[in-house]
């Protein structure tokens, strides 16, 4: 996949989003560089999830622009934005993104299959991803037969298998205990970095944010703090 090397990989300018009388985003600017990991933090109702949805092309902002590798998402219709999400983005949600009737390997292989990769090739690739995330031997298990941490590793494999430019994670450890959550964050940040993708994590948990190289704080729909620091490393 060819990435634009100059300028930020993901760029938001003046994002405004309202739901009725409620202002969720009140003019947000944010740049995410290639390979950068950013934690978006804030209390409940601060607008951090709305920001993630706008960056990912799930929601269309009322005003402002989002550009991925220099290409504006605002010019795209829903079908084209869906294609961007499939091809250039990866997603890790809190839970429930794996299809219950598919075994782990097919859940992962489904992503490249949706992009036209033949099933055999997609399955082999999925097997390699699962093995690299420590899930060798669990390929045939269905989501209900995996622990929460294992299921999130499968979700990480599914998000990264298509070689996305940006991975979005929405409270990826929200349904896990602390130790498992730390483990999933280690896998998520390491694998995303090795794959050369940028990572945007929405969380309210400082322990989760510590795994990212940059911390952005959102309050009342605005960015109120933006600090870079050395990320937590694998212990």
């Amino acid at each position: 996949m060819s990435h634009t090397t100059s300028g930020p990989r993901l760029s938001a300018r003046g994002l405004v989003k309202q739901f009725g009388a409620t202002t969720a985003l009140a003019g947000v600017d944010l740049d995410v560089a290639a390979g950068e990991s950013v934690a978006v933090m804030g209390p409940s109702g601060s607008g951090k999830s709305t920001l993630l949805h706008c960056l990912a092309g799930i929601l269309v902002p009322d005003a402002g622009t989002v550009a991925l590798s220099g290409r504006g998402l605002h010019d795209l219709d829903e079908r084209e934005r869906s294609l961007v999400r499939r091809r250039q983005y990866g997603f890790v949600f809190q839970f429930g993104q794996l299809l219950a009737e598919l075994p782990a390997i097919e859940n992962v292989a489904l992503a490249p299959m949706l992009l036209g990769t033949p099933r055999r090739e997609a399955t082999e690739l999925a097997g390699r991803w699962l093995a690299s995330l420590g899930l060798a031997g669990m390929e045939g298990r269905r989501p209900g037969e995996l622990s929460g941490g294992q299921a999130q590793r499968v979700a990480v494999a599914r998000a990264l298998i298509t070689g996305p430019e940006v991975v979005f994670a929405d409270e990826p450890t929200g349904a896990l205990d602390q130790a498992t959550g730390q483990d999933v964050m280690r896998v998520l940040t390491e694998t995303t970095r090795l794959a050369g993708a940028s990572l945007v994590v929405v969380t309210h948990d400082a322990g989760v944010a510590a795994w990212c190289g940059r911390r952005v704080e959102v309050r009342d729909g605005r960015v109120v703090a933006d600090e870079r620091r050395a990320p937590e490393v694998a212990r």
Binding site: A56, Y89, F91, G96, Q97, L114
Partner: peptide, 18 residues
């Protein structure tokens, strides 16, 4: 029964036509 599953699939780029 599967509304969350379906919604997350579509958010992740799965076409509704599928």
């Amino acid at each position: 029964d599967r509304r969350r599953e379906y919604a997350l699939q579509v958010l992740a780029g799965t076409p509704v036509a599928l």
